[in-house]
């Protein structure tokens, strides 16, 4: 990579406003929100149902999100890759419907098409625990991809839903990468070499996704990028070290960014969610929160405290590190756009 021409802060600021910026994972969208500013964010993969929902509950949640979207002049549903470019042109934020669990599908593959009809375009194979498809990243067994899991992945590809392997067990994810007809992604995960966490990725996983032409959304969520320094809130530079690491390992074309932060400004809702998550899955969050009195508050690195509300410090940081303009565009959204266009087929 050519790192000779360093962009000035002003150039980087202009670049961020001009570029397509995609957040690979956010949640809790509930209508108009000051946190989604079309000058700072173009589109985001929003988790539109709770991970433990069954099909009926997930459909209800999705319909609630659709209703919220209908009364939001600043946001729009993304059903094709071109919708993201159009959203940028029109000055609105594109909302991509994603699920972080296959539980709503249960053992009925026809539900993938039904969820597609409701707008869902990204589905994650498992969420920490085992499902019918495979094992989550907290399962000590990690039994690999099940027979049903293989059919599930085939159906995602046939329907045109992107396969997300975040939160998936390591063996299961490697088998899914090998089995998938289309390149999968880790929408929000980091190299475990820098921050050792069951949610993060081994070099083997990173290389496998690179060789398959997939994508890794490096994640600003603090427990995944704090480099295991107990009691220390990471900075945007700590986060960028994770980006550099993946770029060095598999190249500039397979890296994106993700915040795992909330779209809503309803902080009570978000705090409740954090508390429930951190209680349910201490293996992921407790190392980071062990030395903070508030187990819900500090979720993003110093410099990008707002998460999805303002990702321009990441663009600034990449510029400081000497990334070229076209490479910055790839990392902050271009790669996600290319990837989604490829796996959605439009």
């Amino acid at each position: 990579m050519n790192k000779t021409e360093t962009l000035s802060p002003e150039q980087a600021a202009r670049l961020h406003k001009d570029a397509i910026v995609i957040d690979g994972l956010s949640f809790y969208y509930d209508g108009p929100t000051p946190r989604l500013n079309p000058e700072l964010i173009t589109a985001t993969n929003v988790t539109v149902a709770e991970t433990y929902n069954d099909f009926g509950a997930a459909v209800e949640e999705i319909l609630t999100v659709r209703a919220a979207l209908a009364r939001d002049p600043g946001a729009r549903l993304v059903e094709r890759a071109a919708d993201i470019e159009q959203a940028k042109q029109d000055g609105v934020v594109g909302i991509i419907f994603g699920l972080q669990a296959s539980l709503p599908i249960g053992t009925d593959l026809s539900r993938i098409g039904k969820l597609y009809d409701l707008g869902v375009r990204i589905i994650q194979l498992t969420y920490n625990d085992r499902t019918w498809t495979g094992d989550g990243c907290l399962e000590p067994v990690d039994g690999g991809l099940s027979r049903f899991g293989r059919e599930f992945i085939e159906e995602l590809a046939r329907v045109g839903v992107a396969l997300d392997l975040s939160h998936v067990g390591r063996r299961t994810s490697l088998e899914a990468i090998a089995a998938s007809p289309k390149p999968p992604m880790f929408s929000h995960a980091n190299p475990a070499a820098l921050t050792d966490n069951p949610r993060n990725l081994t070099d083997e996983q990173i290389k496998a996704i690179g060789e398959r032409g997939g994508l890794i959304g490096c994640c600003t969520w603090a427990p995944l990028c704090y480099k295991n320094r107990a009691g220390v809130q990471p900075t945007v530079d700590d986060f960028l070290d994770h980006v550099d690491y993946v770029v060095d390992l598999i190249g500039i074309d397979h890296v994106g960014i993700a915040t795992d932060s909330a779209c809503t400004a309803n902080t009570a809702w978000v705090a409740q969610h954090s508390l429930e998550f951190n209680t349910a899955f201490p293996e992921i969050a407790s190392g980071y929160y062990a030395h903070f009195s508030d187990r819900t508050g500090i979720t993003q690195p110093v410099g990008v405290e707002g998460g999805i509300a303002d990702l321009s410090p990441i663009t600034q940081g990449l510029a400081r590190r000497g990334y070229r303009e076209e490479d910055i565009r790839k990392v902050i959204g271009g790669n996600f756009l290319r990837h989604l266009r490829e796996v959605w087929g439009s």
Binding site: W132, D135, G143, R147, G149
Partner: peptide
């Protein structure tokens, strides 16, 4: 026969052990 949230069935080539839920 197949995998569920608890265990693998006897037709699963993965022959995985019990899940946490199981």
């Amino acid at each position: 026969n197949e995998r569920n949230l608890l265990a693998d069935g006897c037709l699963e080539p993965t022959n995985a052990g019990l899940s946490r839920f199981g």
